[in-house]
């Protein structure tokens, strides 16, 4: 037993060392740095205690970024899982060409986020010549044909739509992996008893896919909070302010974006708050969705 434990430690050691060095150590460094005023160019940061954190509370840009992060997390999450469930039920209903549909739905996920930004920003949402406005023009829906989907008031919603479109495929694959494990006889028995599709979904599918769902939701939560590339690239030269999330705001304050802001200490404070946010979100999700093990 003792020998087996040694061997386990030996095999764990490389990843553990890497985890400690590349994640735990920088995290501790970032937490320490969040108590300093530092530009990153010199080695003499000034200790400011909790000032960076107190500044965050009254920083409108940070609060707006936090709000955007939470909207992306909640609205994006609802959209993704709702559509993924609908698709998974449709694909699981014995439809022909299931694999083809699954591939098509998954396809946007394999395209680089920057490509999505350029494609949607310049070709789809372009208020003058974009496909979306042209489509509504064809349908003679004037209000939508002239609608500016990317002006500051609406751009976040337009981008959340892209995020949903991009992400559905990935979460669909995860959910389908769980759904396909459910024995068909459970559905057959329910059908014999006269259960509707909706009832089967809530009473069989949802409870039995819960394990996978929890992992998928936590995974989405982490992805949403740290989402950067698609949003950052959306504005071309500069990410539109209405799309700033915690991750983007952290980057801008820490490293500027062609502006000499370079407030590394403050950016670290944003990072610490974001880390806490991820921990809290994971905790809430795990608490809300109790893990009950169903054996079948």
């Amino acid at each position: 037993m003792k020998r087996r434990r040694y061997i386990a430690w030996i095999f764990l050691a490389p990843s553990l060392i890497m985890y400690l060095y590349f994640f735990v150590y920088p995290t501790i460094e970032a937490i320490i740095l969040s108590f300093y005023k530092a530009s990153g160019f010199t080695q003499n940061p000034e200790f400011v205690g909790f000032k960076n954190f107190s500044k965050l509370i009254s920083d409108d840009s940070f609060l707006a970024a936090l709000k955007n992060t939470l909207l992306l997390l909640v609205i994006g999450g609802i959209g993704i899982f709702l559509i993924a469930f609908i698709f998974s039920l449709l694909l699981g209903s014995g439809i022909k060409g299931k694999k083809v549909y699954r591939t098509i739905i998954f396809f946007p996920f394999i395209i680089a986020p920057v490509v999505h930004s350029i494609y949607w920003g310049l070709l789809v949402y372009n208020p003058r010549k974009g496909m979306l406005n042209q489509f509504f023009k064809l349908l003679h829906i004037e209000a939508l044909a002239k609608f500016t989907f990317t002006e500051p008031k609406y751009v976040l919603w337009s981008v959340i739509f892209i995020v949903i479109w991009v992400s559905v495929g990935f979460y669909l694959i995860l959910l389908m992996a769980g759904i396909e494990r459910i024995p068909p006889y459970l559905y057959e028995a329910a059908r014999i008893e006269g259960a509707t599709e909706l009832r089967m979904f809530f009473n069989i599918t949802l409870p039995l896919v819960k394990e996978v769902l929890v992992i998928a939701i936590i995974f989405w939560g982490i992805n949403a909070v740290k989402m950067f590339d698609l949003l950052y690239a959306f504005g071309g030269i500069l990410p539109p302010r209405a799309l700033w999330t915690n991750a983007i705001y952290l980057y801008i304050m820490g490293f500027g974006k062609r502006d000499p802001i370079f407030q590394l200490g403050y950016a670290s404070a944003i990072g610490v708050v974001t880390l806490l946010l991820v921990i809290v979100i994971s905790f809430i999700i795990r608490k809300l969705i109790r893990r009950e093990i169903y054996e079948y």
Binding site: G121, L122, Y125, P127, F149, P152, Y154, G235, L238
Partner: peptide, 8 residues
Amino acid sequence: EGAAGFTW
């Protein structure tokens, strides 16, 4: 027209 929503 539409400039407010232009993506560079």
